[in-house]
Design a protein around this nucleic acid. Structure first.
Lengths: 133, 133
DNA sequence: AGGATTCATGTTATACTGTAACCTTTCTTG
DNA sequence: CAAGAAAGGTTACAGTATAACATGAATCCT
């Protein structure tokens, strides 16, 4: 039951995984369109929203882009390292940070529901290549 | 010298401070436009970019919005708590978190340059009003 | 079976966010 | 004053996202 919805989601997720790097919604659209000539933005955004809901995809807020989740365990708080030279994104997890972050936010009685943690900088590879920060 | 540029920045910053809450660039535009009938987006975006550069304004990536910095000390890493009920935003600082975050990201040789930390949830006030998360 | 219902997707149109590119004005400096 | 630099004006458009309604397939219920 309720199987139809998963098709588009599967195609979108596959496109994101093939790419590996962050993709804009419109890049996903172009990829998925290959098979389906008439695909419009809402379809992609709907699939992305569902995948994010299911923890299969993350949105990189500071890049306006999307990536497939690389962790087996979904339902975690992802920490992204974003290289501004090459665009590579690493996904990490730290219970310490998320706990501490919840604690800080909670000091004023705030109830955290969703964390956005993104670190921009330069990856080891680009740094060693000599590109100055 | 070089004084002209600060006027627009001052108006934009004043608008953000008057408002207190996050504003979209186009909301700022509407505010600042009162005095200057023909003001176009690039002017606002330029002023915002300069203010962000100077640490006077932060961009809330997950809201596509801007707020005046509330801390006296600029050049810190801000941590934002964003209430999804009422839109209120609190700005906090934690050296522990930013250090730990840099450490985590640095494990793979990544050199952090800019941190984005935003926590969505429900503020104490909205929570007590009974709005269920 | 057959109609009602539900839900993903198709479709159209548009709103919102952001910037490229070029021009004009003002200020500074020699 | 001429030359140059920096800010802002202006036009136009690119990129991101969603509202609103139509369509069609699977499911449910009697």
């Amino acid at each position: 039951m309720r199987q139809r919805g998963r098709n588009m989601q599967a195609e979108v997720l596959a496109a994101l995984r093939r790419c590996g790097a962050p993709m804009s919604a419109y890049e996903v659209l172009d990829q998925v369109r290959d098979g389906n000539p008439r695909l419009a933005p809402p379809t992609i955004y709907r699939a992305l929203a569902a995948l994010i809901e299911r923890g299969k995809v993350h949105r990189l807020e500071s890049l306006k882009a999307f990536v497939a989740c690389r962790c087996e365990r979904h339902r975690h708080v992802p920490i992204f390292s974003i290289c501004e030279e090459c665009g590579t994104v690493e996904e990490a997890v730290s219970r310490d940070i998320t706990n501490e972050l919840s604690r800080i936010a909670g000091q004023s009685g705030f109830a955290p529901a969703r964390h956005v943690i993104e670190v921009h900088g330069q990856c080891a590879r680009c740094e060693s290549k000599g590109a100055p920060a």
